[in-house]
Write a protein that binds this DNA or RNA. Structure first.
Length: 271
DNA sequence: AAAAGCCCCTGGATGC
DNA sequence: TGCATCCAGGGGCTTT
């Protein structure tokens, strides 16, 4: 479910309200992708000092150490002042002095992992290979193009891989390639400077607009206040197979790349 | 080194 | 109604 926009929208929806909160109790549900990595009791008494984002990971800073949170395919966080009964898919609760932070994740591809710091091997393992942050100044057209030149796989899969640029998932990869007029099957290394620059701008544009719209709610995404996103209403190609291109009317095509669906307009997007 | 496949897991939609 | 099949917003790991 969550790509960079959804993760960032989630972060913004509770970061200020949880900052300064003291952890009073921790409840673990069914196993997530990885074990927490510490006794849950060790978190009690810690104070949340802030919430950052790296790619699709949330980094919850504590007065000692930090928690790495990932929403996987079906995860969402909620933060509410009142305690409520845990449901069957609520697998991590942080009861704090400011309210209850809860991770709901039916498919359990998500994770909550404790690390002593960002230099902790477990943090390095998860964050170390991540590429450029697309909504920061480090994501320049030049650095992006240089990264693409080293990769011979189809551009769609290189965007998804996250080691050149982070945060672009299956929805926004298709959308960005449409905006840039680039066929998803083009080898990343073969993109010219100008085309890479167009894709660079498209990635920034689509992610930033999606954040503004509160992300995409396809099935059940909501931010930590329970609010849905609306960017899916603006999708040009994602999940629109067979429907007319919003720009030229040509039926949108669907193809499989690396076991994932890719949507594109064969007329608007050039090989 | 990089590319391609394989899984992890649950639930909803579709088809017979 | 029941059951089988396929698909879904991710990504680490293993195999080529």
């Amino acid at each position: 479910m969550p790509e960079l926009p959804e993760v960032e929208v989630t972060r913004r929806s509770f970061a200020d309200r949880i900052a300064g909160a003291r952890i009073d109790r921790v409840r673990l549900g069914k196993a997530l992708r990885w074990p927490l990595g510490c006794e849950s009791q060790a978190l009690v008494g810690r104070v949340v000092t802030g919430v950052r984002r790296r790619g699709k990971y949330l980094l919850m800073d504590l007065d000692q150490g930090l928690l790495l949170l990932h929403l996987g395919m079906s995860g969402s966080l909620s933060f509410a002042p009142l305690w409520t009964e845990a449901g069957p898919h609520d697998h991590f609760d942080l009861l704090t002095s400011r309210g209850l932070l809860r991770l709901n994740d039916p498919r359990r591809f998500g994770a909550v992992v404790h690390a002593q710091g960002e230099a902790d091997p477990v943090a390095v393992k998860l964050l170390g290979r991540l590429g450029l942050e697309p909504l920061t100044d480090q994501f320049s057209a030049e650095a992006f193009h240089a990264g693409l030149k080293r990769r011979h796989a189809p551009i769609k899969q290189v965007l998804l891989a996250g080691d050149v640029v982070v945060g672009v998932g299956n929805i926004y990869a298709s959308e960005a390639l449409f905006l840039a007029g680039i066929r998803p099957t083009v080898k990343a290394s073969r993109l010219s400077g100008p085309r890479a620059a167009r894709l660079h701008a498209a990635v920034r544009d689509v992610l930033a607009r999606a954040v503004e719209k509160g992300g995409s709610t396809l099935r059940d995404f909501s931010n930590a206040q329970g609010e849905a996103g609306y960017f899916q209403l603006e999708a040009m190609v994602y999940d629109r197979a067979g429907q007319p291109c919003r720009r030229c009317g040509t039926p949108i095509r669907l193809l499989r790349q690396g076991q994932r669906s890719t949507y594109f307009c064969a007329n608007c997007q050039k090989p």
